[in-house]
Amino acid sequence: MAKRDIPEINAGSMADIAFLLLIFFLVTTTMDSETGLVRKLPPMPEDEIQPEDIKIKKRNIFEVLVNANDQLLVEGEFIEITELREKAKRFIKSDPNDPELPEFKETDVPFFGKVMVSKQIISLQNDNGTSYEMYLKVQNELVGAYNELRDELSQKKWGVSYKELEELARTSETAKEKIKALKKIYPQRISEAEPKNVGK
């Protein structure tokens, strides 16, 4: 048999095929990274043990109520959601000269020594008719208040923002300890009451 020349395969359409695949993947996939507000639920109380009524002084509680019309009642007054963060911050930080704001307790905190930590508790109660969006916004503002306070303290003490500290904590042990200390000074205490049908 005569030796045949193998004809060269035309690769010109390769690009078209690859483009087709590329467009398919572009269309079918979602790139959005998942984000969300992280919260921890309290464990369910055991049936046998009746939860004791712990007496907490009224001045230590920051009461947040949300009704079915998505209105906010904070410490007995109607406010807008945009004002909540400042109010919560003022409460969490507390002030030794103000009898309305929470009491203090002396606590030993690494890096800081003896610090007066306020005995704040935020109590959040919502109605069954509250919209999820409003609920999450309130949660967000409260979490934000804690984060801002921690951030301010971190800036003052180390000149690093809380966000940067969290980044560092992945690799460094000291950053982890620092975050722990900040959390000890401003512990996140958001208590969610069992829902009631209030404010129809």
Binding site: E34, T35, G36, L37, V38, R39, K40, L41, P42, P43, M44, L136, Q139, N140
Partner: peptide
Amino acid sequence: RKANALKINYSS
């Protein structure tokens, strides 16, 4: 809570 799945994330 009953099922003891306490770590939650509100996607947003």
